[in-house]
């Protein structure tokens, strides 16, 4: 399966899952909105160019926005995490050279702790920015803090469940062969 085909399928599945399953869950609490879709951006390959990554994040966010009827609301946080992703990846795995040996970020390619940190930081950044934009239109400061914390927690949990359920086979590539 060619990478282009694989990521296109993934793009569609993440959008559909977010729109038709997660957005249709009756709210458990006013602070909790389950978000998983941005995992698509976190799972993009290491070798993707930064411009393409930013552009793809924008298109991805905007696609979701047209389903939820809020153009720009999800696109802005997606562009932010797409832009910041290479910086954090460099910080986390600069010594090991994993970005040469594995295709994309995962537990196997990065190790448990760096991958958890990677996911947690971007989940937090995404929700912080998303709820900040929402908060500028309505709500109180407590609402803002509570929603960022609760939504980050739920998303983090869901991302780990997803990672354990859908184990992505990662080939170890060397340049010795």
């Amino acid at each position: 399966m060619s990478p282009f085909f694989k990521y296109t399928i993934r793009f569609i599945l993440f959008i559909l899952f977010q729109v038709y399953i997660l957005n249709n869950i009756p709210p458990l609490h006013r602070f909790i909105t389950p978000y998983l879709y941005f995992l698509f951006i976190l799972w993009l390959p290491f070798t993707i160019s930064r411009t393409l990554l930013t552009m793809l994040s924008f298109v991805f966010g905007l696609t979701l926005d047209y389903f939820t009827g809020t153009p720009g609301l999800h696109a802005a946080p997606c562009v932010l995490i797409g832009y910041l992703r290479p910086f954090l990846i460099n910080l986390l795995i600069s010594q090991e050279g994993a970005e040469l040996n594995y295709a994309e970020p995962s537990i196997k390619s990065m190790g448990w702790a760096p991958y958890a940190l990677y996911v947690l930081v971007f989940t937090f950044i995404h929700h912080f920015y998303l709820v900040l934009i929402e908060w500028m239109q309505f709500g109180t400061f407590i609402y803002f803090l509570g929603k960022v914390a609760a939504t980050t927690g739920i998303s983090f949990l869901m991302i780990f469940i997803t990672d354990l359920l859908f184990f992505r086979k990662q080939k170890f590539r060397t340049n010795t062969a």
């Binding site: 411009t51 809020t70 153009p71 802005a76």
Partner: peptide
């Protein structure tokens, strides 16, 4: 600074989408 400028442009585009929707 192409990447940073590109990022800024996309941010502005998405926020203006939101405001002028």
């Amino acid at each position: 600074y192409f990447n940073f400028l590109f990022f800024l442009v996309l941010q502005i585009v998405s926020l203006s989408f939101l405001v002028t929707y």
